Simulated scan of single mutants.
Amino acid sequence: MGKEKEPVISIQNISFKYEGQERYALNDVSFSVEKGEWLAIVGHNGSGKSTLAKILNGLQFPESGKVLVGNYQLSDETVWDIRRQIGMVFQNPDNQFVGSTVQDDVAFGLENNGVPVLEMKERVQNALERVSMGEFLDQEPHHLSGGQKQRVAIAGVIALRPQVIILDEATSMLDPLGREEVLETIRILKEEQDLTVISITHDLEEAAKADQMIVMNKGEVYKEGSPDDIFQLGKELIDLGLDLPFSIKMAHTLRQKGFTIPEKYLTDAELVEELWTLHFDK
Rank of each mutant, 00 (worst) to 15 (best):
A269P: 01
M250T: 14
K282P: 01
D281A: 13
L266R: 05
K257P: 00
G258F: 05
G258E: 06
T277Y: 10
E263L: 08
Y265P: 06
L266E: 09
R255Q: 01
K282F: 09
F280Y: 12
D281M: 14
D281N: 14
E270C: 06
S247R: 05
T277N: 13
T253D: 09
T253I: 08
K249E: 08
T253E: 13
L271S: 05
V272G: 05
S247A: 11
T267D: 10
K249R: 06
A251Q: 00
L266P: 11
K264R: 15
K264N: 03
A269N: 13
A251W: 01
F280G: 01
D268E: 15
L271I: 10
T260Y: 01
F246N: 03
L275F: 10
F280K: 09
Q256P: 00
I248N: 01
F246D: 08
G258N: 06
L254E: 05
S247G: 05
L278A: 15
T267G: 10
H279G: 02
V272E: 12
T277R: 15
P245H: 03
I261Y: 01
T277A: 08
F259E: 12
P245L: 01
P262V: 05
L278H: 11
H252I: 03
K257V: 01
Y265L: 12
T253M: 07
A269Q: 15
L275V: 09
T277C: 05
E273I: 02
K249C: 02
L278T: 12
P245Y: 04
M250N: 03
T267C: 09
I248T: 14
T253V: 06
T260C: 03
R255S: 02
H279P: 00
I261W: 04
L275C: 11
L244M: 03
Y265T: 11
L275H: 08
T253H: 11
D281G: 15
E270D: 11
K282H: 13
M250D: 02
V272I: 15
T267Y: 08
K257F: 07
L254T: 04
L271Q: 07
Y265K: 08
T260E: 11
I248S: 09
F280W: 13
R255Y: 00
S247L: 07
W276S: 14
I248R: 05
L254F: 08
E274L: 03
L275A: 11
H279W: 12
I261M: 02
K264Q: 10
E270R: 02
E270I: 05
L266K: 08
E273W: 06
K264E: 09
T260R: 12
S247I: 08
L254R: 01
T267F: 08
M250L: 15
T267K: 10
L266M: 09
E270M: 04
D268Q: 14
T260P: 00
G258V: 10
E273Q: 15
L271V: 07
H279L: 15
H252S: 13
W276V: 11
V272K: 11
H252A: 13
A269I: 10
M250K: 15
F280H: 15
E274K: 12
L254P: 02
L244R: 01
K264L: 00
G258D: 08
M250E: 15
F280S: 10
E274P: 01
K249F: 00
K282D: 12
L271H: 02
E270Q: 15
Q256H: 06
P262F: 04
K264A: 00
R255V: 01
Q256E: 14
E270T: 05
K257E: 11
D268I: 11
T277P: 00
